[in-house]
């Protein structure tokens, strides 16, 4: 799966974001994470292969999430759906 890594000075958490390449809320979430200075990886689900999309679906559902984007999974434990600035900051302790 093609995960794109965005460098940041805060590397305390493993942050994985599933996004849609055309989605403005996803774009705003990517920008928000960049502005926070956290390192994260993302996958644009619409550009992924069918096989990878199935894996993404399973990953999200395993964490009890809905199939909507952006979905952020922090340390493979906390799942946040949508552009939720306060929830993201709280989960990252920022």
């Amino acid at each position: 799966m093609n995960r794109i890594k965005v460098e940041g000075k805060h590397k305390d958490h493993q942050i994985l974001m599933y996004a849609i390449s055309t989605c403005n809320w996803c774009r705003m979430t990517k920008q928000f994470l960049r502005d926070l200075g956290v390192e994260y990886e993302y996958v644009d689900v619409d550009l992924a292969s069918k096989g990878d999309q199935e894996l993404i679906k399973q990953h999200i559902q395993r964490h009890g999430g809905d199939l909507r984007y952006p979905t952020i999974i922090i340390d493979d434990k906390i799942l946040i759906t949508g552009f939720r600035k306060e929830q993201i900051k709280e989960a990252l302790g920022l």
Binding site: T22, N24, W25, V45, D46, L67
Partner: peptide
């Protein structure tokens, strides 16, 4: 800025699918 981003997403979807599906949903 938000509006431009949404409109670009719609344009992109019209180009790749042939119809302007919602830019925030997986088609």
């Amino acid at each position: 800025e938000m509006l431009q981003g949404i409109l670009k997403g719609l344009k992109r979807n019209e180009e790749r699918y042939g119809y302007p599906s919602c830019p925030c949903r997986l088609a």
